[in-house]
Design a binder for these strands. Structure first.
Lengths: 232, 232
DNA sequence: GGACACAAAATTGTATACAATCATCTGACT
DNA sequence: AGTCAGATGATTGTATACAATTTTGTGTCC
């Protein structure tokens, strides 16, 4: 990143920087599913023309973070329960094997970086900034994919993590609060020990935990999509 | 598809239709890795402005079918040997499990459609149109992903199949000619029998066969990228 | 003859202008 | 009062115009 985290990349933002800024805002739940993303509005915010804003929105649409309907514009995507299941099933297919590879390849500096992620995440939680904690929690997963040195799979996981953020915004059950806490830490330990089998198994169970901490009953989806349809 | 296969969608082509036309041309090896894709040129061919052409190119860039370098334009991607390995490793991770799901869910009409694909493929081979045969061979794989009813994974597989077409254009060994022939047919049989285990195993070995039919020695990559650099 | 510098051409990046479509509001009619 | 028709406004889709950059061509100097 070339500029510090959140502030609007002031003048002459590029298409990618805008996409990244929006992506971050979505990750951190600062903008929620269904939010309309008007082109003129964004163009003014970032000090560029609609041309470049449109490119950003198209990028985000391709990773399913926003929905673009012809002549109706872009809005933050609202995954259905079906899509939510698909996303987590895809993660359960990709990430455990990737964690295994990461365990084989992780270097000391990789481990250090992951531990920094975890402590940043805890710091964000202490600072009552759950959005940022969620974002960092996602980064943890993409970082493991990067360590596994499979750029192609890593990019898939990156989009799945991003979409998971939307899914969590829509379907997370408050009851299942202390979700992970030590799940990530145990994973780092397995990676540090180069224990491939355990890394794979910990990642699988961690994802199953996340998946089952969602309320994906059909009723819920219906009501949410209804409210969605009504609100705009 | 709204218009018949190949011919240039004559007037008022849309961004998606252009992307699909280019994608098809790449699939069929009518345009090869490294080919420059000038915006003005494409704009004139499809009878639209550069605006929509740029959107098409951006779409293709996102699935790694074309490379866009700032101020240097778009060209058909030339995957490296590393990327080639990554793509096939990703396929070997995703597709066998997906074939298993497809075996569980395949309907009679699904099976019929797959058999039609195979016979079309053989017809294309008999008509000395190997490009089209390759395209149909790829469609076979994406069709199985669709049958498995995992749209998210299916879209991943779709991009992997597309990139595989580029990889085959670059690294296919002529010697290993009669690649599959009956591999697809055996897979359809397993799906028809709802034999999940066999479908998964056949898909895995099929992909391993494809992967090992590539010449991915480093030397090869170097020479190809060099020729690439020289040719344009 | 070769190398460098500068200029011209071509190509891409961005902004703006115009066209098309959708949303909203007004008003007449039943 | 309610409903439908038409008009107005806002928003997106596309084309064009201009700016920035790279590439190519030419001429001069060594």
């Amino acid at each position: 990143m070339t500029h510090t985290a959140d502030s609007p990349p002031p003048p002459h933002a590029t298409s990618d920087s805008i996409a990244q800024a929006l992506s971050l805002a979505i990750h951190e739940h600062r903008i929620t599913p269904g939010t309309k993303l008007g082109e003129d509005e964004l163009a003014e915010i970032y000090g560029v023309s609609r041309t470049v804003v449109r490119a950003s929105l198209q990028t985000l649409a391709h990773i399913k973070l926003v929905n673009i309907k012809r002549h109706k514009g872009a809005s933050v995507a609202s995954p259905t329960t079906t899509e939510a299941h698909e996303v987590f099933e895809a993660r359960e297919l990709l990430e455990p094997r990737t964690a295994r590879s990461a365990a084989r390849l992780a270097t000391a500096s990789d481990i250090a970086k992951l531990e920094r992620h975890i402590s940043d995440e805890h710091a964000a939680l202490d600072a009552a900034d759950p959005g940022r904690a969620l974002y960092l929690s996602g980064l943890f997963h993409t970082e493991i994919a990067r360590i596994a040195q499979q750029a192609t799979i890593a990019s898939f996981i990156e989009t799945l993590v991003a979409r998971s953020s939307l899914i969590i915004a829509l379907y997370w059950r408050r009851e299942s609060a202390l979700c992970e806490k030590h799940a990530h830490h145990a994973l780092v330990q397995a990676l540090a020990d180069q224990n491939e089998q355990q890394a794979e198994e910990l990642m699988r169970s961690h994802l199953v935990d996340l998946h089952s901490a969602l309320d994906l009953r059909e009723r819920n989806a219906r009501s949410l999509s209804l409210r969605d349809a009504l609100s705009q």
